[in-house]
Amino acid sequence: MWCRLGLSQTSAEARYQSLKISFTSETMRASSLCLLFGLVLMMTWTSEAEPQAAVIPEKCCFNFIDFAIPSAKIKSAEKTDSHCPVPGIVVTTPRTEFCVDPAEDWIKTYMEKRADQENKKN
């Protein structure tokens, strides 16, 4: 058979060996890529499986008003969460919300009166 093709047996074996090496290296590359992709996918999946929930407060104050709000206009006043970078009080009026510095005298007075009223109810 080798004679009809005009090839010697050694050249046919050499071509076979080079084909075999080429095929093996391509298969190894594909297997390595699949393995690498699988590992990356697994790392991504496991890192998202148990996320570390960051504590993000619902409301924080960064800018404060510089005027007093009349007590009759205040619907509610709540301290910001302790996880906020700056302490503040969120004051809600019929129209909007304001951030107030807790060091302001007028809000201290309002919060004390409100606390007294709640204590009387209980």
Rank of each mutant, 00 (worst) to 15 (best):
R15V: 09
A12D: 00
M43H: 11
M42Q: 11
Y110G: 03
E104Q: 15
V55M: 14
Y110P: 04
I21A: 11
Y16L: 12
S8N: 07
W45C: 09
E78V: 10
K73N: 15
V55A: 13
F62Y: 15
S76T: 14
P85K: 14
T27K: 14
V40Q: 14
I56K: 12
A30N: 05
E112G: 01
T93E: 04
N119T: 12
M42T: 12
F23H: 12
N122V: 08
A49F: 10
L5V: 07
E112H: 04
A115W: 04
F98S: 00
D105L: 13
C3H: 15
I21V: 08
T44V: 11
S32A: 14
C61G: 05
A115I: 03
N119R: 15
Q52R: 13
C84I: 04
I21M: 04
A53R: 12
I69R: 04
C61A: 05
C84L: 02
R29P: 00
W45Q: 09
W45M: 13
L39K: 04
C60T: 06
C84H: 05
L33E: 12
A12V: 12
A30P: 00
Y110Q: 01
K20P: 01
S31Y: 06
S25A: 06
A68S: 15
F67A: 06
W2F: 11
W2A: 15
E13G: 01
P94C: 02
E112M: 06
A115V: 03
T80F: 05
C99I: 04
A72K: 08
D101V: 00
I21K: 10
V86Y: 08
T24F: 07
L19K: 11
T92M: 06
Q9L: 11
